[in-house]
Amino acid sequence: MPSSADRPSPNGDDSLRLLSLVERTLTGRLEEALRSCDSSLDQWRILRLLADRGGSPMNVVADHAMLLAPKLSKLVDRMVAANLILRRQDHEDRRRVLIVVSERGRRALAEWDEATAEVRAQFRELLGADAEQFGALLRRLQDGLDPAAVEPSTAVPG
């Protein structure tokens, strides 16, 4: 007979707990892989966004990296000082500043992607054919919970 810990709770809280546990586990594994490169999950998320989208304003970067403005500002300052990213004036709105990945940042991102590849591959392997559906479900949840979001968070690492 299964123990009470093995049975889902009748009110659905088990799914929320499991989602939190999976997030913690994946975050911990990604952080560990990135520490070996003297990087952080926040830096990787920022460079990944900028490499994928080109220049982005700070509010988009903050939403994507899930950081509050003061913490993001300090991190961006450190990343600019390390020549991983650059600040550029937006050609369409000259009052706005965009953040773009530098050439050194692209090289660092390639190293960080390599360092996290095993974690991301294990995630995709565990989900198999369900990886796309899982990502779609998480995006649907995010959109439903925060309909004013600038962009849905990327659910599937990598």
Score class of each variant (00 low, 15 high):
Asp52His: 12
Asp90Asn: 15
Leu126Gln: 13
Leu68Glu: 14
Phe134Val: 14
Glu103His: 06
Arg78Val: 03
Arg53Ala: 15
Ala82Thr: 01
Arg17Thr: 10
Val61Arg: 00
Asp93Gly: 08
Leu127Tyr: 07
Thr116Ala: 14
Leu98Glu: 07
Asp77His: 12
Leu19Arg: 14
Arg24Trp: 11
Leu19Trp: 12
Gln122Lys: 13
Thr27Leu: 09
Gln133Cys: 07
Arg29Phe: 02
Trp112Glu: 10
Val80Thr: 09
Leu49Lys: 03
Ala81Ile: 01
Leu72Thr: 01
Thr27Cys: 05
Ala33Thr: 00
Ile85His: 01
Leu127Glu: 05
Leu109Trp: 03
Ala81Thr: 04
Leu137Trp: 12
Val60Glu: 11
Ala62Ser: 11
Ala136Ser: 05
Leu127Pro: 05
Leu127Gln: 04
Gly135Cys: 06
Gln122Arg: 15
Leu75Glu: 01
Val100Ala: 07
Leu86Ile: 13
Cys37Pro: 08
Glu132Pro: 02
Ser102Thr: 04
Ala131Gln: 03
Gln133Ile: 09
Leu21Arg: 09
Ile85Trp: 01
Ser39Asp: 06
Ile46Ala: 01
Met58Ala: 13
Met66Glu: 11
Val100Met: 03
Leu72Arg: 02
Gly135Gln: 06
Ser39Arg: 03
Asp63Ile: 03
Leu127Gly: 06
Arg104Ser: 10
Ser73His: 13
Val80Lys: 04
Asp130Lys: 09
Leu138Glu: 13
Arg104Cys: 05
Glu111Lys: 10
Asp113Trp: 04
Arg48Glu: 14
Glu111Ser: 08
Ala115Asp: 05
Trp112Leu: 12
Leu138Gln: 14
Glu125Phe: 04
Ala121His: 10
Met79Glu: 04
Arg104Gln: 13
Arg94Ser: 14
Lys71His: 15
Ile85Lys: 01
Gly128Trp: 05
Gln89Leu: 12
Leu30Asp: 03
Ser36Lys: 15
Leu68Asn: 10
Ser73Arg: 12
Gln122Phe: 12
Ala129Trp: 08
Val100Trp: 02
Arg106Cys: 04
Ala110Met: 05
Leu84Pro: 00
Lys74Arg: 15
Arg104Thr: 10
Leu84Tyr: 07
Lys71Ile: 15
Ser102Pro: 02
Val22Asn: 06
Leu49Val: 01
Phe123Thr: 14
Val101Phe: 03
Trp44Asp: 04
Leu86Arg: 15
Leu26Glu: 08
Met58Glu: 08
Ser20Ile: 05
Lys74Glu: 15
Ser102Gln: 02
Leu75Pro: 00
Glu125Val: 02
Glu132Ala: 13
Pro70Gly: 09
Ile46Glu: 02
Arg94Gln: 12
Arg87Thr: 09
Ile46Val: 07
Val60Asp: 08
Ala33Phe: 00
Ile85Asn: 02
Arg24Asp: 15
Leu126Ile: 11
Arg48Pro: 01
Gly54Lys: 05
Leu19Tyr: 10
Leu137Arg: 15
Gly54Leu: 06
Leu75Val: 00
Arg94Asn: 10
Asp63Lys: 04
Val60Asn: 05
Val76Arg: 09
Leu47Asp: 05
Ser20Phe: 07
Ala121Trp: 07
Ser56Phe: 00
Val80Cys: 07
Ala51Phe: 11
Glu32Tyr: 03
